[in-house]
């Protein structure tokens, strides 16, 4: 069974240019949910964004786990209609076992992220 952990994240809605230019910490994984939205792990409490109307939310409502590329491939094959991206690093998002899921494919590991309200159901289905 896949056991996920609560993540401390920062969620940002801002202009694409501001998101591109933001100075994230070196260890940050930045998942661009949309051109104007980023989910950053771990949380970036000191981040400044060059958009005075940006919405920056310290968000504890995501759960995730790092898995091996082989495990990620198995999850995708069993529970997902789309194919893992070939070029790394990469990100992908869509329904996995019917639950909205985001993947960050690093070169040697893969981060699986879901909204925490679905954590129990996701673990059960996977």
């Amino acid at each position: 069974m896949l056991a996920l952990n609560r993540l401390d994240t920062t969620r940002i809605i801002a202009t694409p240019a501001a998101l591109d230019a933001a100075a994230y910490t070196k260890d940050a994984v930045v998942i661009r949910i949309a051109p104007d939205e980023a989910l950053v792990i771990p949380a970036q409490p000191d981040l400044t964004v060059a958009d005075e109307h940006a919405i920056v939310l310290q968000d504890s409502a995501w759960s995730g786990v790092w898995v091996s590329p082989e495990k990620a491939a198995d999850i995708l094959e069993r529970h997902c209609e789309w194919e893992a991206p070939a070029a790394l690093p990469a990100q992908a998002q869509g329904a996995v076992a019917g639950i909205p899921t985001k993947f960050y494919f690093d070169t040697d590991r893969v981060l699986v992220v879901i909204p925490s309200p679905y954590q129990r159901e996701f673990e059960h289905r996977i």
Binding site: R11, I13, H53, I55, A61, P115, P117
Partner: peptide, 11 residues
């Protein structure tokens, strides 16, 4: 020129 965030599951 607006930013929209759904924080239903976040809060």
């Amino acid at each position: 020129d607006v930013r929209i965030i759904n924080q239903t599951m976040s809060l």
